[in-house]
């Protein structure tokens, strides 16, 4: 960690950390979407509903998922129109094809709300202009994101994570080892991701050669003695974790975390310390 002043931790920080990555046993928030629920068996659905009834996080996420399912229902039409107009003006690459005007989508099949309307598409010149604006906006968004990450990431991103800090990755957060450690690690520790039924863990050399790979049910995973024995002092290693669903799909990934085992003192230095 740098010598920057660490912001004071408030209730909100603790609550966010308490639910970071989902509380133990919680499904991912998307599980409460109607389409996802419909794909479950009756028994699975009732288990999910029972869980949401007793879990504040899932109860809240269920509200947000239902709001998504509701689409524009209940929203003021003029507000939706206002947003739509902004989107057509400023999110042009997705909104503007180079083709002829499209027919209105069929609500029943596409899931588009019945009040939806389609306006004529702009020509290619306009699309090209909006691409330029879009690219500039993208650069700004990325730059803003990098700025926020640089100044506010806690702890800082690789390659110099703080000793003992948590590396916040895509969604899997790696806990230890990170940065410099005194002894070869015996285990790799990360935060459980709600909905994950297993994890793929990789230990890599600095040139990204995979030194060891395993699957684990829950964090942490113990490093086999033969692997630990190959780790050398003064050498950096990285490790990463993928959270997996029951069918083996990737649910979330960590960023790679780097650690280095502190070298032993040189013999001459050790002798100097000897009285």
């Amino acid at each position: 960690m740098s010598d920057e002043t660490t912001p004071r931790r408030e209730l909100a920080d603790w609550l966010r950390d308490a639910y970071a990555g989902g509380a133990a046993g919680c499904p991912p928030p998307k599980a409460y979407l109607a389409d996802e629920m419909a794909a479950l068996t009756a028994e699975e659905r009732s288990r999910l509903e029972a869980h949401a009834a007793s879990c504040p996080a899932c109860s809240a996420e269920r509200e947000l998922a239902r709001a998504f399912d509701a689409g524009e229902t209940g929203a003021a039409a003029e507000d939706v129109d206002f947003i739509t107009a902004r989107l057509r003006r400023e999110a042009a690459p997705l909104a503007t094809p180079a083709a002829a005007p499209a027919k209105p989508a069929e609500p029943a099949r596409t899931g588009m709300p019945s009040g939806a309307r389609v306006v004529p598409f702009r020509g290619r010149t306009a699309a090209a202009r909006t691409w330029v604006r879009f690219a500039a906006a993208a650069v700004l968004v990325v730059a803003a994101g990098l700025t926020v990450r640089t100044f506010y990431a806690r702890p800082p991103a690789l390659p110099a994570p703080p000793p003992g800090g948590v590396v916040r990755g895509g969604e899997v957060e790696l806990v230890a080892p990170v940065a410099e450690v005194a002894e070869p690690p015996r285990e790799l520790q990360w935060l459980h991701v709600a909905g994950a039924t297993g994890y793929r863990v990789r230990l890599l050399a600095v040139d990204d050669t995979v030194l060891w790979e395993t699957k684990a049910g829950r964090p942490p995973v113990l490093l086999p003695a033969e692997v630990t024995a190959t780790l050398q002092r003064g050498v950096s290693y990285t490790w990463s974790v993928e959270a997996l669903t029951a069918d083996g799909a990737t649910l979330a990934r960590s960023q790679p975390a780097r650690f280095r085992i502190r070298p032993l003192p040189e013999a001459s230095e050790a002798e100097e310390d000897t009285p």
Binding site: A67, F68, V80, F82, I83, L87, G111, P113, A116
Partner: peptide, 30 residues
Amino acid sequence: AAARAALFERYHRKVAGWCLRFCGDRDEAA
């Protein structure tokens, strides 16, 4: 480009509605 636009047409009002619910303010939602 046409395929992207068709996807946009299918979902943009749904997303707009959700953003309004999440933000409670149409400028923020936009």
